[in-house]
Nucleic acid binder design. Structure first.
Lengths: 139, 139
DNA sequence: CCTGTGCTTGACGCTTACGTAAACGTAAAG
DNA sequence: CTTTACGTTTACGTAAGCGTCAAGCACAGG
């Protein structure tokens, strides 16, 4: 039988920072807040695939405007161990809360997009009017 | 002919605060940042429908995680005067930027919702397993 | 006239999410 | 051995978005 070669790839802090376009400071800060827990080789941080995924989730959470505290609860849900019943019920409750939040946001976004489209239409109409006026002036 | 009674309704700062569930401090802060420009009767602020609408837009912007500076540019688009060509072009450009931003957010939201659904399914499966185990124990 | 209610303007405080040095360790390259 | 690259911790700085007094005006009711 073949050994299945698990890549077991790791990254330095600088590599991760470059990939996700954040500063080293930011990554260390996330660790300080308990969002990342890289391995230590001596004093140096070594990031595993798990950390990479978590950083991705954190940054997506940020794009969505969540605070780091909120992001922590979200991200921790992803790799929660099966756990006991109370823990599972709590998780399901958190999920319900998060979902409501996200659906509110999507609703807000859709409204805003609709209204932006209106403003845009007005703008383009005004612009067209302006330009046809100019054409009129030349005659 | 009848006079059409325009309501011309106005609100005090406390009324607006109660309606939108924000503090007076918050409303004054938004004014300080140029987001609201209520009438003054003597020293007292009087809010007109326009201000009310703007406050609504501001708070929606906040729910979406925009900074007050970003919200300012968005909200100001809504009641921009027809203006000159350069202004209109600028506005259309802003709209394009905002739309891209919002569509990125919606994409992030949809992804997150999908993943939450997965986590939820896992949770419910684990929970069901736990409970069926307990039932098994009793026999 | 006094009290209460609602409004006003400062002005300092606090939290979040990092930025920005300063000062130092380590390991490879020249 | 010195430079360079890359990493580390400690710690103070900062911008945003308000909270929280403090101190004062204005007007209605008792």
């Amino acid at each position: 039988m073949h050994n299945i070669r698990v890549p077991a790839e790791t990254w330095s802090i600088a590599e991760l920072a470059a990939e996700y376009d954040v500063t080293l400071r930011t990554i260390r800060f996330y660790e300080d807040r308990g969002l990342l827990t890289p391995e230590r080789r001596g004093t140096v941080r070594v990031y595993h695939p798990r950390d990479r995924v978590r950083l991705g989730l954190i940054l997506r959470g940020k794009r969505l405007g969540f605070s780091l505290d909120e992001i922590a609860t979200i991200v921790d849900m992803y790799d929660a161990e099966p756990g006991e019943e109370g823990q599972l019920v709590y998780l399901l409750d958190q999920i319900t809360t998060r979902r409501a939040d996200l659906e509110q946001r999507r609703h807000d976004i859709d409204e805003t997009l609709r209204e932006l489209a209106e403003v845009e239409a007005r703008c383009e109409a005004d612009l067209a009017a302006l330009r046809s006026d100019r054409r009129f002036d030349r005659r």
